[in-house]
């Protein structure tokens, strides 16, 4: 297989959300065939430049986005593709020490203290990695001080806070207040989760309320393009 064919296969494997040979892929028939991770290894061995690989991931995710928009793909399909890219990017960065190939910016994400829900946060984190952001996921039930500490150390461009309980919305407000008080002028704050709303975001001073993952991605892209 020549380099162009390999790149084409890699792109196809991302579109099909086929992570590795153990993964069943989009239509459940791909188990046992080389997936994104195996093809990536072949590509690296063949000496394909990282930037070409990253470009093929970008093209693949654009196709996936269009398939989701046309309802041909569902959320699970889109997430599987994003996970392929996320894991592949980690390998590219670690093996080739290309530094931060995720050049769209740094995103810190967490579910606030008192809240053990992670699904929304995980979906957004996976999609962000797939879209080329450098993501640090602090997990669930994260105390305000731990978030503040990580903002100082990781120096993110964006912070995303998630809460699924009405009771933990208050904690979200607390974290946003601490961030504002500590004055990070360029930091953009995104919030999301079932009980939150645009009105709540306005009230607590968050920059963006995200209704769902696509809303988050769209708003982030808009902000990134402006800055």
């Amino acid at each position: 297989m020549n380099k162009d064919e390999l790149l084409e296969k890699l792109e196809h494997s991302v579109v099909m959300g086929h992570l590795d040979a153990d993964d069943e892929g989009y239509d459940g028939s791909m188990e046992g065939t080389p997936g994104t991770l195996e093809l990536l290894e072949q590509a690296l061995e063949a000496g394909i430049e990282p930037q070409k690989l990253i470009e093929s991931f970008r093209v693949a995710m654009e196709k996936v986005g269009n398939l989701f928009a046309s309802e041909e793909y569902n959320l699970a399909d889109m997430l599987a593709s994003a996970e392929c890219v996320g894991e592949a990017m980690e390998i590219i960065e670690s093996k080739l020490q290309v530094g931060n190939s995720s050049n769209k910016g740094k995103f810190l994400i967490a579910t606030v203290e008192g809240d053990l829900h992670d699904i929304g946060k995980n979906i957004v984190a996976t999609m962000l990695k797939g879209a080329g952001y450098q993501v640090k996921d602090l997990g669930i039930n994260v105390p305000a001080q731990a978030i503040m500490q990580e903002i100082r150390e990781f120096k993110p461009d964006f912070v995303g806070l998630s809460a699924l309980l009405t009771s933990t919305m208050i904690e979200m407000e607390h974290v946003v207040r601490l961030i504002k008080e500590d004055s990070f002028p360029d930091l953009k704050l995104f919030i999301g989760g079932a009980p939150t709303s645009q009105a709540f975001a306005d009230k607590i001073g968050a920059d963006h309320y995200c209704r769902d993952v696509m809303d988050a991605m769209n708003k982030l892209e808009q902000v990134s393009n402006v800055s």
């Binding site: 993964d23 069943e24 989009y26 459940g28 699970a76 399909d77 599987a80 996970e83 979906i123």
Partner: peptide
Amino acid sequence: KSSSTVFMKAARKGLR
């Protein structure tokens, strides 16, 4: 894996 995306990825066949 402490990740709920496992369930979502495994859902593709059932969705179809």
